[in-house]
Amino acid sequence: MKTLKLLFLLSCLTLASRAQKIIRSNVDLNEQTIVKDSTGKILPYNYWKEQLASGNYSVRQTITHVKDGRTNKVKKDTTAFVLTWLDEAGRKRLAEYKKSFASQQSETAQEQQATTSNTVLKAEEPYRYVPTRLPRTSEGFVNGEPMEPFKESTIDGKKIDIKALKGKIVVLNFWFINCPACRDEMPELNKVVAEYSADPNIIFVGLSLDKRWEIKDFLKKMPFDFQHIADARYYGDKYKVNLYPTTVVIDKEGIIRFNSVGSDNTGYWIKKTIEDIKAQNM
């Protein structure tokens, strides 16, 4: 009997410990929490909160190594976190954790609803983030210079001819599957594509280093709503693309109006450049 009681107590302690870790990951994160991307840039609260809610991202505490004589201790920073893209297994674990605590969250929501049922709530103002600096530009592209054209087929067999697309705005994104920064910016780029989905004069083309079948498999797990050209290393070399992702916006006259490397607010700058081009053509 004593043995059974002891085993039962140990099980309860184990579950409590696991529950505490899961709950802490939800409770401790707030507007004052510092969350960075993989490059070390601090992200706005509304942005990383939205990425966590999507279920495709998680956060991990930053880890520092502290040297003390002959030892090299590992220390976790409890005030700073890094936004991390989850693979399929990670998303599955996260979904299981959320399901485990659904009943607790439901009870809390019911209590809050009872408290605010007779209160008129104002709609929250949409968050608008305006970058304070321009992103880094690519060595292979010069804003204001003509884009050297190319012809190629997408993974779905559609012909892309930059010269024939004169009169349209073209957005190019050089990327590859195992590029963390490329994956980080995909949700942001998808929003831009969705915003201009009804405009046939804006074309979004991705040039990937990966094989056609690899891209198709990847897109089933991680949507990236550009038209994609596979085996594009030739074009990366042709245009001297040394860093990924690299993004280029070409205006209706075939002139490069914007280019950048990295995932530094790329969606914002693409949209701004498109709107500037459209305004000048009105």
Score class of each variant (00 low, 15 high):
K2Q: 15
F8T: 15
A16L: 11
R18N: 10
I22L: 06
L29P: 05
E31H: 10
S38H: 06
S38Y: 10
L43P: 11
W48G: 04
E50H: 01
L52G: 01
G55S: 04
N56K: 02
S58A: 07
V59W: 12
N72H: 09
K75N: 14
V82I: 15
L83F: 15
L83T: 13
T84E: 14
R93H: 14
L94Y: 15
A95R: 12
S103I: 14
Q104A: 15
S106V: 11
Q113E: 07
A114M: 14
T115V: 12
S117P: 02
L121F: 07
L121S: 00
K122F: 13
E124K: 08
E125G: 04
P126Y: 05
V130L: 01
P135A: 01
R136Y: 06
E139S: 09
E139T: 04
G140E: 00
G140Q: 00
F141V: 03
N143I: 05
E145Y: 09
M147V: 08
F150D: 03
I155W: 02
K159E: 12
K159T: 10
L165I: 06
L165R: 04
L165T: 09
K166E: 12
F176C: 02
I177M: 10
P180V: 01
A181I: 07
C182E: 13
R183Q: 09
E185P: 05
M186K: 12
P187M: 00
E188T: 12
E188A: 15
L189K: 07
A194G: 10
A194M: 11
E195T: 12
P200C: 10
F204V: 03
V205K: 05
L207F: 10
D210F: 08
I215A: 02
F218Q: 01
F218R: 01
L219W: 02
K221W: 08
M222P: 01
F224L: 01
F224A: 03
Q227S: 07
H228F: 06
I229C: 08
G236Q: 13
K238W: 10
K238I: 08
D251R: 02
K252A: 14
I255Y: 06
I256K: 07
W269E: 11
K271D: 06
T273P: 15
D276L: 12
K278P: 10
Q280N: 13
M282W: 03
M282N: 14
